[in-house]
Design a protein around this nucleic acid. Structure first.
Length: 502
RNA sequence: UGCCCGGUAGCUCAGUGGCAGAGCAGGUGACUGUUAAUCACUUGGUCGCUGGUUCAAUCCCAGCCCGGGCAGCCA
């Protein structure tokens, strides 16, 4: 994956500077500058150069050309290395020995290595700029380079998923994605939650969380058959049917009943033929699970978690968020701050049905107790009635999976969905049924075989405890935080029905 | 999976039953401490594919492919 693929041939590699000493400039001897014993100069990231406290006599930059403007006697080159949204302006004087030969090759998209001086800029647009003393075109990009100095449609950029991280928007999105993942771990680690790696391959096919992808090593055109004429999965790799996981929840429950507070954070897979802007076949999910915890504690953690993520990104990705607030979603920053300030609303399913019935709206899907809340209903609650994230809880038992705890009324379960404006459901969770007999009853009602869940039932046989947890769709959270409207644009390489390029 | 919208230059798009258009990108030149620089000139087309209607189809019709929106399923 890393540079071995033929398509990566044109990808620039950082040079081993120590093997290519530049005798002409003894950069390492300049005072006040970091240098190795071999007198090589270490790379400065553009984001650090932009934050420099003062000028520097020697600096090494490596990155890609965003745009070049030729002036009389020199050229301006905007160099970006992905470390920040902003690039740095490089002045390439015509006195460079390779100016005539190489500057034309320093076109948009080309990889460059620049050594020079960091100086205060004479221009108005930036504080610092770099006057090049040497400039090397490490990797050219010819006129066919698809990213231009203009706006592109998101649809077009999706078709060049291998190049779109070099664009402003996707650079911002993926830097934020990285930070958001870090913030997830930080949140749980600071609270002594243990990170559990739930299996990606699973053999339980009846969790009710959607269609599963089959995992098999059998020959699709000539599978072994049983005498009854069925495919003989006993001869498959795992000696039975196997799938990609749709959720790590059941496994997380196992570990919560041992380590008390745990979370999973990994890829999950749904083979649903969903064609919407908020569904993907492969997505990442965070699933905390807490022993000795009820629905109330679960809702409280969900709110604290979501707010932590927003606050962290707000603080550490300010430049990228500002860009997104300007070019993607003008209401973004105000909405994030609003969500941080306000307590999330809570509303039982029964109250939600009443609110919807009393709203005076005509609904495309009828509102009736016992029916699922439809997209239009969820949107009304979050965007119009509460105008704020809202947790809907205590759903009808018949709508929810077997593992949710049955309430005293016998007809609702301790389920919760967190709905946010613009996205809809971002979190789904529940207090789990800890009573063995009730759980067995639920399995029977859902027509699920007890023997498949023997280990799950054992948790209730040995030291059972009230426990609760939820799942947060990482990409949906990222959509909310970035204002990006399509889930395909917050995943590096999206997998959706009929599409798994790259 | 259903309903709806779209597919024209490398990109973003306009357009017409009768010679295929603009802006940007690319090229050439000019100018310039520029900021997606500017100005002039200029290269560039299987109008998604297949079939049909027509003297003539990029345009009208049908089928297919691809992209997108919404809905369902959910995170």
């Amino acid at each position: 994956m890393r540079g071995r693929h033929p398509r990566a041939a044109g990808r620039p590699r950082p040079r081993r500077l120590s093997r290519r000493p530049h005798a002409r400039i003894c950069l390492g001897r300049r005072p006040g500058f970091r240098s190795s014993p071999r007198m090589s100069l270490s790379r400065t990231l553009v984001k650090d150069a932009l934050l420099a406290a003062g000028p520097a006599d020697a600096i090494l930059l490596q990155g890609w050309v965003r745009t070049r403007r030729d002036a009389k006697g020199f050229s301006f080159v905007e160099l970006n290395d992905g470390s920040s949204l902003k690039g740095i302006q490089v002045i390439a004087p015509a006195t460079l020995p390779n100016y005539a030969a190489d500057l034309p090759r320093a076109a948009t998209g080309a990889a460059l290595e620049v050594r020079g001086r960091l100086v205060a800029s004479q221009g108005a647009g930036q504080k610092w700029e770099v006057v090049a003393e040497t400039l090397t075109v490490v990797g050219e990009a010819d006129a066919t380079y698809p990213l231009q100095k203009k706006g592109h449609s998101l649809e077009f950029l999706r078709e060049i998923a291998h190049l779109r991280p070099r664009s402003n928007l996707f650079g911002a999105v993926f830097r934020i994605r990285s930070r958001l993942a870090y913030a997830v771990h930080q949140f749980f680690q600071e609270r002594s939650f243990a990170y559990v790696h739930a299996p990606i391959i699973t053999t339980s096919d009846c969790e009710g969380a959607g269609e599963l992808f089959r995992v098999t090593t059998l020959d699709a055109s000539h599978p072994p058959m049983t005498e009854a004429g069925d495919v003989d999965f006993r001869q498959d790799f795992f000696a039975r049917k196997a799938y990609l996981t749709v959720s790590g929840q059941l496994e997380a429950e196992v570990f919560a009943c041992a380590l008390s507070n745990v979370y999973t954070f990994g890829p999950t897979f749904r083979a649903e033929n969903s064609n919407t802007s908020r569904h993907a076949a492969e997505f990442w999910m965070i699933e905390p699970e807490m022993a000795f915890c009820d629905l109330e504690g679960n809702m409280a953690l969900a709110e604290e978690f979501v707010k932590h993520l927003i606050r962290d990104v707000r603080q550490h990705c300010a430049g990228d968020l500002e860009f997104l607030g300007k070019f993607v979603d003008q209401g973004l920053l105000a909405r994030l701050d609003f969500v941080l300030e306000r307590p999330f609303q809570r509303c039982s399913y029964t109250e939600a049905i009443e609110l919807l019935a009393k709203s005076g709206r005509t609904w495309e899907h009828p509102v009736a107790w016992g029916d699922n809340l439809q997209s239009e209903h969820e949107r009304y609650l979050a965007e119009e009635h509460f105008k704020c994230p809202v947790t809907v809880y205590n759903y009808p038992r018949t709508l929810k999976p077997f593992y949710m705890r049955v309430n005293e009324d016998g007809r609702t379960v301790r389920a919760m969905d967190l709905l946010v404006p613009g996205i809809g459901e971002i979190i789904g969770g529940s207090q789990r049924e800890e009573r063995l007999e009730v759980l067995r009853e639920n399995l029977a009602q859902h027509q699920l075989p007890e023997k498949e869940y023997w280990w799950y039932l054992d948790l209730r046989r040995y030291g059972t405890v009230p426990h609760a947890g939820f799942g947060l769709g990482f990409e949906r959270m990222l959509m909310f935080v970035t204002g990006v409207a399509n889930i395909r644009d917050v995943i590096p390489f999206a997998r959706t029905p009929g599409s798994a390029d790259f």
